[in-house]
């Protein structure tokens, strides 16, 4: 029997492998990485989210609070090829601003996979 059952189970952890696979399939790909955190952030430094040109994504950089904004920036990075360093702070509920409800802060680096 092959390694398949165990690999399938851990596949969502193999974010970069998926990025390479998507790129090999000819899809446009951007990689987002949590590079620093302050306070109670939901995902640790090094957590990654991979996005393709169709807004498919795998992995995570938060508990879902900032993924929408990161995907938006990832699409822009795919367009212009420029890397970006994003900063997210505490959510201001009045302003409906994108942020972290948990009160933490994170920096996310977004780069296109050329």
């Amino acid at each position: 029997m092959s390694e398949k059952p165990y690999e399938a189970i851990a596949e969502h952890e193999n974010i970069l492998e998926m990025a390479a696979q998507w790129r090999a399939e000819g899809r446009q790909v951007a990689i987002a990485t949590v590079v620093s955190t302050w306070g109670s952030s939901p995902r640790p430094v090094g957590s990654q989210l991979v996005v393709d040109g169709e807004q498919s994504m795998i992995g995570s950089v938060s508990g879902g609070c900032i993924e929408g904004a990161v995907v938006h920036e990832a699409m822009a990075a795919i367009e212009d090829g420029e890397p970006r360093l994003l900063h997210f702070g505490v959510t201001d509920e009045q302003a409906w601003e994108v942020g972290l409800a948990c009160g933490g802060e994170v920096e996310v680096f977004v780069e296109k996979l050329d």
Binding site: L16, E17, A20, R23, I31, E111, L113, D114
Partner: peptide, 11 residues
């Protein structure tokens, strides 16, 4: 990141 570097990393 370029694909060649990513391939080297994954290897």
């Amino acid at each position: 990141m370029n694909s060649a570097l990513l391939d080297t990393l994954l290897e």
